[in-house]
């Protein structure tokens, strides 16, 4: 076992891991931060997306030891300081951007990464950016609307469809 230390959502966290321990396992099993989900475990679905040093990564396809010393942000770090929902999370609730909710942590983290590099994305750019995030419930429409809303752009009413 090897000691690994990383800054998770602004707090320094350490633990003992094996070489093969994935970042998502470290987050969920060592730190008990179960907001980050494992969907496919084959780096296709994106439920496990977190940010490492400001960049979105699939935490099921990164070793915990590769994140040693890194700044990691997870879905638990998306809330406001008072614990209320952050802007993107609130938009997902307002626009019903989820049904079962399993993919949602990854969707929110990818949305956060997208808006960091492209604050006012078009609908097409949102859909393109989410190609590594799979949702089996919503058909994506409301997810796209939620991200449009979170970026402060006009969204047509959900009921119109």
């Amino acid at each position: 076992m090897t000691k690994v230390t990383m800054n998770v959502n602004g707090r320094s966290r350490s633990g003992e891991v094996e070489g093969r321990t994935l970042l998502v396992q470290f987050l969920r099993e060592t730190l008990s931060m179960t907001g980050t989900h494992v969907g496919c475990d084959t780096s296709q679905c994106g439920a496990c997306v977190v940010h490492v040093d400001g960049q979105a990564v699939k935490s099921c396809t990164m070793l915990a030891l590769e994140a040693d010393g890194a700044e990691v942000t997870t879905i638990e770090g998306m809330t406001n300081a008072d614990g209320s929902l952050g802007v993107i999370q609130q938009a997902f609730q307002d626009y019903h951007g989820l049904q079962c909710g399993f993919c949602t942590p990854g969707m929110v983290m990818s949305a956060k990464a997208l808006l960091a590099e492209n604050p006012k994305p078009s609908e097409e750019e949102i859909r393109e950016y989410l190609e590594g995030n799979i949702c089996r419930c919503t058909g994506y429409h409301n997810i796209v609307k939620a991200i449009m809303a979170a970026s402060g752009q006009q969204v047509e009413p959900v009921a119109a469809e």
Binding site: A56, V57, K58, T61, Y129
Partner: peptide, 9 residues
Amino acid sequence: IGDPAVRNR
């Protein structure tokens, strides 16, 4: 290539 998260790694 792949998707944004894959391209970051």
